Amino acid sequence: NEEPLPEGWEIRYTREGVRYFVDHNTRTTTFKDPRNGKS
């Protein structure tokens, strides 16, 4: 039961299956979860 991502964020996966987060607001990507700060 995960809380929803902030507005404008999306979860994607690399070809290796590593989860990362896309911030469409700033057009950046990060491996850090914007909901809780954990990677």
Rank of each mutant, 00 (worst) to 15 (best):
N1S: 13
N1V: 14
N1M: 13
N1L: 13
N1F: 13
N1W: 13
N1R: 12
N1T: 13
N1P: 13
N1Q: 13
N1A: 13
E2C: 15
E2K: 09
E2D: 11
E2N: 11
E2H: 10
E2R: 09
E3I: 12
E3M: 12
E3V: 11
E3D: 12
E3W: 09
E3P: 11
E3A: 12
E3K: 11
E3H: 10
E3S: 11
E3L: 12
P4Q: 10
P4S: 09
P4R: 09
P4K: 09
P4A: 11
P4D: 10
P4E: 10
P4N: 09
L5K: 01
L5Q: 02
L5C: 00
L5M: 11
L5H: 02
L5D: 01
L5V: 06
L5A: 02
L5S: 02
L5W: 04
L5R: 01
L5N: 02
P6D: 04
P6M: 04
P6G: 05
P6S: 04
P6F: 03
P6N: 03
P6E: 04
E7F: 12
E7T: 12
E7P: 14
E7D: 13
E7M: 13
E7S: 13
E7I: 11
G8A: 04
G8C: 07
G8R: 05
G8M: 04
G8D: 03
G8S: 04
G8V: 02
G8Q: 05
G8I: 02
G8W: 04
G8H: 06
G8K: 04
W9I: 03
W9M: 02
W9Y: 04
W9R: 00
W9A: 00
W9Q: 00
W9G: 00
E10P: 00
E10N: 05
E10R: 05
E10G: 06
E10Y: 07
E10H: 07
I11E: 08
I11M: 14
I11W: 04
I11L: 11
I11P: 02
I11N: 01
I11T: 07
I11R: 06
I11C: 08
I11S: 07
I11D: 02
R12M: 10
R12H: 07
R12K: 12
R12G: 06
R12V: 07
R12T: 04
R12C: 13
R12E: 04
Y13H: 08
Y13R: 06
Y13W: 12
Y13D: 01
Y13E: 05
Y13S: 04
Y13K: 05
Y13T: 06
Y13A: 04
Y13F: 11
Y13I: 07
Y13C: 06
T14Q: 02
T14S: 09
T14N: 09
T14R: 02
T14P: 01
T14C: 08
T14L: 04
T14K: 02
T14A: 02
T14F: 02
T14D: 06
T14H: 02
R15A: 12
R15E: 10
R15K: 12
R15Y: 11
R15P: 12
R15W: 10
R15V: 11
R15L: 12
R15N: 10
R15G: 09
R15D: 09
R15I: 11
E16A: 15
E16R: 15
E16K: 15
E16C: 15
E16P: 05
E16V: 09
E16Y: 14
E16D: 13
G17N: 08
G17W: 05
G17S: 04
G17R: 07
G17H: 07
G17E: 03
G17Q: 05
G17P: 00
G17A: 05
V18A: 09
V18W: 11
V18L: 12
V18R: 14
V18E: 08
V18D: 07
V18T: 10
V18F: 11
V18M: 11
V18Q: 11
R19N: 04
R19Q: 10
R19P: 12
R19C: 11
R19S: 06
R19T: 08
R19K: 11
R19E: 07
R19H: 06
R19G: 04
R19M: 13
R19Y: 05
Y20P: 00
Y20M: 06
Y20N: 01
Y20I: 07
Y20H: 02
Y20K: 01
Y20C: 07
Y20S: 01
Y20W: 04
F21Q: 00
F21N: 00
F21S: 00
F21H: 00
F21E: 00
F21M: 00
F21W: 06
F21R: 00
F21Y: 08
F21G: 00
V22L: 11
V22Q: 05
V22F: 15
V22M: 09
V22Y: 15
V22E: 05
V22K: 05
V22P: 00
D23L: 03
D23Y: 05
D23K: 03
D23G: 02
D23W: 03
D23H: 09
D23Q: 05
D23V: 02
H24D: 04
H24N: 11
H24I: 09
H24P: 05
H24S: 08
H24Q: 08
H24L: 10
H24K: 09
H24E: 05
H24A: 07
N25T: 09
N25D: 05
N25H: 08
N25W: 07
N25E: 06
N25R: 08
N25Y: 09
N25L: 09
N25M: 08
T26A: 06
T26Y: 04
T26G: 06
T26I: 02
T26R: 06
R27V: 07
R27M: 13
R27P: 05
R27T: 08
R27F: 09
R27C: 15
R27A: 13
R27K: 14
R27N: 15
T28D: 05
T28C: 15
T28Y: 07
T28L: 09
T28Q: 09
T28P: 00
T28I: 08
T28A: 06
T28S: 09
T29Q: 12
T29I: 15
T29P: 06
T29H: 13
T29A: 13
T29K: 15
T29E: 12
T29R: 13
T29S: 11
T29M: 15
T30K: 03
T30M: 04
T30Q: 08
T30L: 03
T30Y: 05
T30P: 01
T30N: 03
F31I: 08
F31S: 08
F31W: 10
F31C: 14
F31T: 10
F31E: 07
F31V: 07
F31D: 07
K32I: 15
K32D: 15
K32P: 02
K32M: 09
K32Q: 14
K32L: 13
K32W: 13
K32R: 12
K32T: 13
K32F: 12
K32A: 10
K32E: 15
K32G: 06
K32V: 14
K32Y: 13
D33Y: 02
D33H: 03
D33T: 00
D33I: 01
D33E: 02
D33F: 02
D33A: 01
P34M: 00
P34S: 01
P34V: 01
P34Y: 01
P34G: 01
P34H: 00
P34W: 01
P34Q: 01
R35T: 04
R35E: 02
R35Y: 03
R35F: 04
R35Q: 02
R35C: 03
R35H: 02
R35S: 03
R35G: 02
R35P: 02
N36V: 13
N36M: 11
N36R: 08
N36L: 14
N36P: 13
N36H: 11
N36D: 14
N36Y: 12
N36E: 15
N36T: 15
N36F: 10
G37T: 12
G37W: 10
G37L: 10
G37I: 11
G37M: 09
G37S: 12
G37Y: 12
G37Q: 10
K38L: 15
K38R: 09
K38T: 14
K38A: 15
K38E: 15
K38I: 15
K38M: 15
K38Q: 14
K38N: 14
K38P: 15
K38H: 14
K38S: 14
S39D: 15
S39K: 12
S39L: 14
S39F: 14
S39C: 15
S39T: 14
S39Y: 14
S39Q: 14
